[in-house]
Design a protein around this nucleic acid. Structure first.
Lengths: 290, 290
DNA sequence: CAGGATGCATTAGCTTTCCTGATGTGGACC
DNA sequence: GGTCCACATCAGGAAAGCTAATGCATCCTG
C-alpha cells in the first residue's frame, strides 16, 4: 500500500484507462499495469475490472480511502515543511456564498494594516477549498453550507474539525416574483417536495442539505452565485440561499424557511500549523471570529 | 514519505533510540539510520535531535501525522480486504464506562439469537478502542465521554464521524460521604476549581472535558471503574461520572451537575464496511441504536 | 467474416533503491 | 585519556521498479 501505488490506482480509476493513467503520471503503460497487479496481489482482491476498466466493489472502497490518504499525506508534508517558510503571504480560498460583508471588511482591514501583503484569492467549490486548505496550499478556507442552527457544517473528507464559525444567517427559499409562494411569510421544505429545484453543486449543493427527497429540475455547473439567482428569477427553479444574498433584490422573492430550522453558516478552515501569531492568516482568523 | 519510512520514524521517536527501533522493526541499525536520513532529506528538515534522540519541533508534527496516517492506512486495508471475509464472528470493544444495562441486554440477546456466535470482548482505554475499531481489528467499539446534551463526543483521531448515539445519562460529581458537598442538590464545576480531582485517563479522563482549569490530585492508570469509585469513597478526590454508576451506592454521594450542562454519553463506532446486514455486528448495531 | 487497431498483460534486461555487515566518529563516563 | 556506546558512513549484493519489446485478447471496420 505504497502511496505511489495508491496514486497510480486513483489515476487509473479516474481515467478509466491504464494508458491514460500512465501518461498522466509520466510512466509507461507497462509500469502502471505492474503497479496495479502488485496492489491487487498485496490486497488479495481484484480492484479493477478490465475491458472496460472500472473499479470493483473493493476498488471503489480503496479509491475513497486512497484519495483521502493522499490528501492527508500532502497535508502532513505541508505541515512539517512549513516550519521554516517565510511568512508574509496570505492565500485565502472561498466557496462563492462564503463571501459576505464581514469577510470583505476583514480583508480590507488586514490589507490596510500590512501594506503590500501578497494576497491570493481562490473562489471554488467546496471540495476544492477543503482539500487545498488541508494540504496547506491555502492558508485559510472559508466554506459555507446549510445546517441546523449552531450545528457545525458536515464537511467532506478530509475536512478537519478545527473549523471555526464565522457567520450564520437565516436560510430562505428563493422564488421568482410571480410564483405562488412569493407572498408567503414562511414555507416548509416538506411542502416543496413537488417543486423543482436548481441543483448547483458548486454554489449551494442540496445533496449536502440535512433533508432529502428534493428533485432537481436543472443542474448548474459553476461557482457563480449571480447566475444562480438569475436562473431563479427567470423561473427555472427554486434554490435555498442565505438571506443576505437576496436582500434588496426586486427581481425575486425570498421566502423564510419555517421547518426544518436551517441556517446558512460560514466556517473558517485553517491550514495545519497556521498557529504563528505573526502570520497574516492568524490575524485574519482573529478578525473573522469574534 | 513512504509509509515504511514513517513507521520507522515513529518507532525511533517512540523508543528514543535508533538501535531499539531497528530491533523492533527487524532491521539493522544501519537501515534505520539511512531511512531517517532519507526522510529528513526528503522533507528538508531535521526531524530528530541525536544524543539524546528526540523529535524536533518538525518531528513532533510529523509524529502526530504519521501515527494517524498509519492507522488510516491499516483501516483502508482492512476495509478493502474485509469484502470476502467469512462472517459469523463478533469482536466488540468498550471503554469501561461504556458498559451499561442496554449493552448487556443487547449482548445477551444477540448471543441467544445466534447460538455459539464466536464473541471477543475487549475492555480498554478510549484511544485503543478507537484505533482498533478504525483498523477493523474490532467490528464495533463502544466509547463514552462527557459532552453537552445531544452533542457528539469529541473523539481522538482517527475517530470517524459515523458514530451513533447509544445512551445518554446525567453527569454527576462523585464525592465521599463526609464531604461538604455531599448533601448539595446541585453543584457547578466552576465552584470546584479548588477541589482535587482524580485523573483517570483510562476511565474518565477529564482532559477531554469541555471545561478546563481543574486540578488533579491523584492519577489513576487503569481501566477499571470500581477502583475509581473506591478511591473517591476513600476521599482521594472527586470524579465526574455517569449517574447510573453510582445509583444504589451508599459509600459515596452523587451530586448532580448544575453547570455546565453535561451528560455522559455512549457512542457506537463501526469498523469500516460493516454494512452487511448478515453480520452479527449489524444486528448488534440495530439492537443498540433504537 | 477477415484484418487491423486498440489496450492491457507479460517478459527480459537494466537501473535504482534499499538492506546488510563492516567500519568510522563523536560524546559520555570513569 | 582511554573505553564504551550509539549513531553515521561505506561498500557490496539482493530486490524492486522501470522501460522497451512482445504477446494476446477484444472491438471496430469494411
Amino acid at each position: 500500500m505504497d502511496p505511489h501505488l495508491l496514486r497510480t490506482f486513483v489515476a487509473v480509476a479516474e481515467t478509466g484507462s491504464f494508458s491514460a493513467a500512465a501518461e498522466r503520471l509520466n510512466f509507461t503503460q507497462s509500469a502502471v499495469s505492474q503497479q496495479i497487479a502488485a496492489l491487487e496481489a498485496d490486497l488479495g482482491t481484484p480492484l479493477l475490472t478490465r475491458r472496460p476498466v472500472a473499479p470493483t466493489e473493493a476498488g471503489q472502497r480503496l479509491q475513497r480511502h486512497a484519495k483521502i490518504l493522499l490528501v492527508r499525506l500532502e497535508a502532513a508534508r505541508a505541515d512539517v515543511t512549513r516550519t521554516s517558510a517565510p511568512p508574509g503571504r496570505l492565500a485565502l480560498g472561498l466557496t462563492p456564498l462564503a463571501w459576505s460583508a464581514p469577510v470583505a471588511a476583514a480583508l480590507t482591514r488586514i490589507r490596510a494594516e500590512s501594506a503590500r501583503l501578497s494576497t491570493r484569492l481562490l473562489v471554488a467549490g467546496l471540495d476544492r477549498i477543503v482539500t487545498a486548505t488541508a494540504t496547506g496550499a491555502l492558508d485559510l478556507g472559508l466554506v459555507d453550507g446549510f445546517t441546523a442552527p449552531s450545528d457545525p457544517l458536515r464537511l467532506p473528507e478530509p475536512g478537519d474539525p478545527r473549523s471555526l464559525r464565522v457567520t450564520e444567517c437565516p436560510a430562505v427559499v428563493a422564488v421568482p416574483l410571480g410564483h405562488p409562494l412569493a407572498r408567503r411569510t414562511s414555507v416548509d421544505l416538506a411542502d416543496l417536495a413537488d417543486a423543482y429545484w436548481i441543483d448547483a453543486p458548486g454554489v449551494a449543493p442540496f445533496q449536502r442539505l440535512p433533508v432529502d427527497g428534493l428533485r432537481a429540475g436543472l443542474h448548474y455547473d459553476g461557482a457563480e452565485a449571480t447566475v444562480l439567482t438569475g436562473l431563479v428569477a427567470a423561473g427555472h427553479g427554486l434554490a435555498l440561499l442565505p438571506e443576505w444574498l437576496l436582500t434588496g433584490r426586486t427581481d425575486l422573492a425570498a421566502v423564510p424557511l419555517g421547518s426544518p430550522r436551517l441556517v446558512h453558516r460560514v466556517e473558517l478552515l485553517r491550514a495545519p500549523a497556521t498557529d504563528d501569531p505573526a502570520e497574516p492568516a492568524s490575524r485574519l482568523t482573529a478578525l473573522l471570529t469574534p
